[in-house]
Every structure is written in C-alpha cells, then in structure tokens.
C-alpha cells in the first residue's frame, strides 16, 4: 500500500506492506537509521520519536496509520553541525556510552520537557492536581521508558536538568 509520511518537514511517498511499522519504515525503507531498534516491543524506548510533538515508540505503530501526522526523528532534532541544546547537553555530560539508546533518550527528553511544561503529573508526583517541579526524581520517573544498559542514567538526568533549568 502507499502512505505519505511527513518526516522532519519532508514528505515521503512510501510504498509498503501493511505490516510495516513506522520504525521499520524509517530504518529499512527511508534510510533514517538514527531511530534505533532495541526490542521491537515497546520495552526499551530506543525507537522513541515524536508524532505531532508527542513521544511514542515507533516500533508499536504501523506506518500506514500516520499519513497526515508530523513525524520528528532524531535527524530532525539537530545535526552534528547544529546540535539541539539537549544533544549538546548529552555530549557535555556524557549522557551515553555505546550511543545506541541515545537518539531515543534525546527525543524522549525533548518531549518530556514539554509534558512537564504543560503541567502533566507523573507517578512520583505526590499531588496529581499540582504542576510538579522537575526534580531529579521526576526526571528519572519520566525517563524510565528509555532503558540504557551502559547506565548513563545519572548523566542523562544531569543533562536534562541543565536544559530544563536553562529553558525555564
């Protein structure tokens, strides 16, 4: 079947199997391999991308369900010559080692700050009617959908906290 996908502002006409997930469309069909496959079952977060500004697992959605959506992948967040503040903070704080979960972490963190800005509570928010401060614990809980086996977690929290403080 055919689907028109808008990725990082560019339109792509994709001829594909109904079974093709958005993740496989990116990696196997469109050459956008910055989005990683770590588990293919929504259990690791390496494939995190943004759909209309919201973070999702690209492995658990079909490409054919996304025509008309604004898709942002790591390639649309920044480039080596023009890093986003989050990407720069990850480099500065060594928020990764092997780097495989990193695009997903950065997409997730980027969208997560927006969720926090909108006042969304989290599991560790004591009073769900409040708009919580983004403490380290809040950052950690909100980033717990992105596994990192190298365990750069403390550095990831440092990087996100820095970006959060600069933008608020």
């Amino acid at each position: 079947m055919q689907t028109k996908l808008t990725i990082n502002g560019n339109e792509h006409d994709l001829e594909h199997d109904t079974r093709t997930t958005l993740l496989d469309a990116l990696r196997n069909h469109l050459g956008l391999s910055g989005t990683k496959k770590g588990c293919d079952h929504g259990q690791c977060g390496a494939c995190t991308i943004l759909i209309n500004g919201r973070r999702i697992n690209a492995c658990l959605t079909l490409a054919c369900m996304h025509d008309g959506d604004e898709i942002t992948t790591i390639e649309g967040i920044g480039t080596p010559d023009n890093l986003s503040p989050m990407q720069a903070a990850f480099v500065q704080h060594d928020g990764f080692q092997c780097g495989y979960c990193t695009p997903g972490q950065i997409c997730s963190a980027t969208a997560m700050l927006e969720e926090a800005r909108m006042g969304w509570p989290s599991h560790v928010t004591d009073d769900v009617t409040s708009a919580p401060d983004l403490t380290d614990t809040e950052i950690s809980e909100r980033m717990s959908g992105n596994l990192c086996r190298c365990s750069a977690y403390p550095n990831i929290v440092d990087a996100i906290r820095q970006v959060s403080e600069k933008t608020t």
Binding site: R27, N28, S33, G34, T35, K36, K37, T73, I74, E75, I77, G78, T79, P80, L83, Q87, A88, F90, V91, Q92, D94, F96, G99, Y100, T102, P103, I106
Partner: peptide, 21 residues
Amino acid sequence: MDRPDGKAKVTGTAAYAFEDQ
C-alpha cells in the same frame, strides 16, 4: 574530554551494524 564520537551518537548519524544497508 568529550567523546569525539559524541556528536555522531547524539544525532543518530553513527552507523551501527544494521544500518547503512
């Protein structure tokens, strides 16, 4: 020192085994 491979990793341009197909 920051990793020289850092920029490639944070931008998704570092090519792992199943990339550059």
